[in-house]
Amino acid sequence: MDALKSAGRALIRSPSLAKQSWGGGGRHRKLPENWTDTRETLLEGMLFSLKYLGMTLVEQPKGEELSAAAIKRIVATAKASGKKLQKVTLKVSPRGIILTDNLTNQLIENVSIYRISYCTADKMHDKVFAYIAQSQHNQSLECHAFLCTKRKMAQAVTLTVAQAFKVAFEFWQVSKEEKEKRDKASQEGGDVLGARQDCTPPLKSLVATGNLLDLEETAKAPLSTVSANTTNMDEVPRPQALSGSSVVWELDDGLDEAFSRLAQSRTNPQVLDTGLTAQDMHYAQCLSPVDWDKPDSSGTEQDDLFSF
């Protein structure tokens, strides 16, 4: 819950932080000083300027060897085509990944977070970031790969997607708890209302004896509580940590079903599988986004697919 609360507080303090972009060759504004600060901008989305290598189908939802083989196929196909790589912007948030063309600003792909089953910074092609997700059109699994400016960037994108998945799962947990509370309150309110109706004398007997209905007592009954809980029953509950912020979080049926399955089948359902080692994760978390744009010590960066 700490990640969720800190993310909400950060967004309320400075929503404009989320509009910064990394990996864009110096076009961005001043960047936060450390990885923790940038992680807090996830709610509205972190932007990464990358190059799209392509996509291939895979048979399993996750796995280092599986993704490595898929990336190898994608890279080989991209090299064989001889075409310049498409420059894209990857927007990562707890909602998922939005992929747009840098030149036309046209939407290429919009992947809900619950469809993503794996992401990684490839070991062999260490400047490549990739994720595996279920197609929104059918049940097939797709591996999408992107060329980053350097290994640090690939690791940073991988960690960002993993963190977005974690925050999304926490949102789901909060929403589920809130819905259970509202359902319980609604049920209790309905029981109270039913009890009051059972003990209320029939209207005919009131008229016969000349008694008047006590409207004041009726007004004191917990009807307002019942209506408050039943009027918006169809509205999706939102985490309290975000009250007053500009973010509107809505959970669709697909996300609810997917996270429910994860909660039942996995020990740590909030953790998205990645190909990063503990050492890689520690190294990337210690980086400032400013470091992502620094040239690798191995030599001059080449803006070309064939540089790796």
Score class of each variant (00 low, 15 high):
Ala3Lys: 07
Lys5Pro: 06
Ala10Arg: 01
Ser14Gln: 04
Trp22Tyr: 09
Lys30Gly: 09
Trp35Pro: 13
Leu42Ala: 11
Leu43Phe: 11
Gly45Pro: 09
Met46Pro: 09
Leu47Gln: 02
Leu50Phe: 14
Leu53His: 12
Leu57Gln: 07
Gln60Cys: 07
Pro61Arg: 14
Gly63Glu: 11
Glu64Lys: 11
Ala68Met: 06
Ala68Gly: 07
Arg73Val: 15
Ile74Thr: 14
Ile74Pro: 08
Ile74Arg: 15
Ala76Gly: 04
Thr77Ala: 04
Ala78Glu: 06
Ser81Leu: 14
Ser81Cys: 02
Ser81Gln: 10
Gly82Ser: 10
Lys84Ser: 15
Leu85Glu: 11
Gln86Ser: 14
Arg95Cys: 09
Arg95Trp: 02
Gly96Ser: 04
Asn102Leu: 04
Leu103Trp: 02
Asn105Arg: 03
Glu109Trp: 10
Ile113Cys: 01
Tyr118Ser: 05
Tyr118Lys: 08
Ala121Cys: 06
Met124Tyr: 09
Lys127Trp: 01
Lys127Pro: 11
Ala130Cys: 06
Tyr131Asn: 07
Ile132Ser: 06
Gln134Asp: 10
Asn138Met: 10
Gln139His: 14
Gln139Trp: 13
Ser140Thr: 14
Cys143Met: 10
Phe146Ser: 14
Lys152His: 00
Ala154Ser: 14
Ala154Asp: 03
Val157Lys: 11
Leu159Val: 02
Thr160Asp: 03
Ala162Leu: 10
Phe165Ser: 01
Val167Asp: 04
Phe169Lys: 01
Phe169Leu: 01
Trp172Leu: 01
Val174Tyr: 01
Glu177Asp: 10
Lys179Pro: 05
Glu180Thr: 10
Lys184Asp: 04
Ala185Ile: 04
Ser186Thr: 03
Gly189Met: 01
Leu193Lys: 02
Gly194Asp: 00
Arg196Pro: 13
Thr200Met: 03
Leu206Cys: 14
Thr209Val: 05
Thr209Ser: 11
Asn211Glu: 04
Leu212Ser: 05
Leu213Val: 12
Leu213Cys: 09
Asp214Tyr: 11
Asp214Gly: 11
Asp214Val: 10
Ala219Phe: 03
Ala219Gln: 10
Ala219Gly: 15
Lys220Ser: 02
Pro222Gln: 08
Leu223Ser: 03
Leu223Ile: 11
Ser227Gln: 07
Asn229Phe: 12
Thr231His: 01
Met233Asp: 08
Glu235Gly: 10
Pro239Leu: 10
Gln240Thr: 06
Leu242Lys: 00
Val247Cys: 00
Leu251Lys: 01
Asp252Tyr: 09
Asp253Phe: 06
Leu255Gln: 08
Ala258Asn: 06
Ser260Met: 00
Leu262Phe: 02
Ala263Gln: 00
Ala263Phe: 14
Ala263Leu: 13
Ser265His: 00
Ser265Ile: 00
Ser265Thr: 00
Thr267Asp: 07
Pro269Ser: 01
Gln270Asn: 11
Leu272Pro: 01
Leu276Ala: 07
Asp280Ile: 00
Met281Asn: 04
His282Leu: 14
Leu287Gln: 07
Ser288Gly: 05
Pro289His: 10
Val290Met: 00
Ser297Leu: 00
Gly299Asp: 06
Thr300His: 08
Asp303Gln: 05
Phe306Asn: 00
